[in-house]
Nucleic acid binder design. Structure first.
Lengths: 108, 108
DNA sequence: CATGATATGTCTGAAAAGAGACATATTGTA
DNA sequence: TACAATATGTCTCTTTTCAGACATATCATG
């Protein structure tokens, strides 16, 4: 039951807070869309359609939380994303909120 | 900047994970819709329309995460909600996910 | 006795989000 | 030379969600 709920909530989280999850992945290491798709699908065992992924990445760049650079590697042309200072701050805000949600839960 | 982001993320969270936030409030103490509205609006400094609140509460009850009982108190008729065992489990799942998101962030 | 607060509910039109296709280009493999 | 995988993008139709109104009832206050 707990595991069922966890899967449900994770899917909910990825769907509704996809921007944050993308920032999280890119924060650990600069990477590109296709790689992120593969990684998220493996890590969370869910489908991530590229039709939602790429527009979200572009939106995050436009918002200044990510920056991208076209790179040639392994004979492949990739748009590699790096997190910006604002992106880092955004994640800090997210983690502080999670922390406060957890702190207030410890009372029970 | 951090505070601006925090407000933005909190609004995002409340909107998209309203069900969980409602469970959280009711877990600390059995309460009713109108009271929750006031509390959430004060605590998070956001608007919570009752047009979304009451249907969500009813959905949570239907799902078995909450149970309600009509009560008369202070000359008022209220539908007081209590969290169920499944509701507790649901919150446990949520907190475990938050925990894992935080743990993986501590590397940076 | 009207007005505002408490209390809970639904409904509708508009906006947003979703699934899945359409589109294109390169590379590696059978 | 097809076909699968890599890689990134848009577009449309459908579904879902949302804001705000519509609705109703009680109670307290001026």
């Amino acid at each position: 039951m707990l595991e069922t709920y966890k899967k449900e909530i994770v899917q909910h989280l990825i769907r509704n807070l996809l921007d944050i999850q993308l920032l999280r992945v890119i924060q650990t290491q600069p990477t590109w869309g296709y790689q992120i798709k593969k990684q998220v699908e493996t890590d969370f065992n869910i489908k991530l359609r590229h039709g939602i992924l790429y527009p979200t990445l572009n939106a995050l760049e436009k918002k200044g939380l990510l920056k991208s650079k076209k790179q040639q590697k392994d004979g492949r042309s990739r748009k590699v994303y790096t997190i910006t200072q604002d992106g880092q701050t955004y994640l800090t805000a997210y983690y502080q909120i999670l922390q406060s949600q957890l702190s207030s839960s410890e009372k029970s």
